[in-house]
Amino acid sequence: MTDRIPSDHASVRTVRGKLARSGGTRRPCLRVPDELADSLDAGDYVRLVLDGDAAHARVSEDATGLVIRGAYDDKSLARDPGDAPNRLVEWVDANDRPLDSAVEVDEVESGYFYGVRVPGRRAVYAPSTPPADSLASIAEKLDGDG
């Protein structure tokens, strides 16, 4: 298995995403591009890499489509963030990205592993293997999601 995967590698699908407002709040969120909607559903949890830092995010749905409202340090915080730092909001602020601006969304592993980057920048990802379905379902049952 390759040690690192660059965003311009043939195995990585890159699509244009958009930052938007999350509901009635002023916090930014990531609109999931239509091209990725076939591999994701509301309620899915994904690994989301922002400037090299891996986070966990829950895919939600609003009247417009799929959206990611936050990215957190682990999956349990993605389920129930409370006052945990929202790494997506921090990334948007650190990169001075206004609402309605474009971002590149890299699909590294369909349905599980995505990267978000400023257009024109290159990223390199460390491969990650999704948990086995049976292990994931056991964990969700233990956490009360199943």
Rank of each mutant, 00 (worst) to 15 (best):
P6S: 13
S7T: 08
S11R: 15
S11V: 14
V12I: 14
K18T: 14
L19G: 09
A20L: 14
R21I: 10
S22V: 14
R27I: 07
P28A: 08
P28N: 05
L30T: 08
E35G: 11
E35R: 13
L36I: 12
A37V: 07
D38P: 05
D38T: 12
L40N: 04
D41A: 15
A42V: 06
A42R: 04
G43H: 05
G43D: 07
D44Y: 08
D44L: 02
Y45E: 09
V46T: 10
L48P: 00
V49D: 13
L50C: 07
L50V: 07
D51T: 14
H56Q: 12
A57E: 07
R58E: 12
A63W: 09
A63N: 10
T64H: 10
G65N: 08
L66H: 06
V67E: 07
A71I: 00
S76R: 12
A78Q: 02
A78F: 01
R79F: 01
P81L: 03
P81T: 02
G82E: 06
G82P: 02
D83K: 08
D83G: 04
D83N: 10
N86Q: 04
R87M: 11
L88C: 03
L88P: 03
E90K: 07
E90F: 01
D93L: 09
N95R: 12
D96P: 00
D96N: 12
R97P: 00
R97N: 01
E104A: 12
V105S: 06
E109M: 02
V116H: 03
G120M: 01
G120T: 00
R122G: 02
Y125A: 04
S128T: 14
S128Q: 14
T129E: 14
T129Q: 14
P130M: 04
A132F: 06
A132Q: 08
A132K: 11
A132R: 15
S134R: 15
S134A: 15
S137N: 12
A139C: 08
E140Y: 08
D143T: 11
D143E: 15
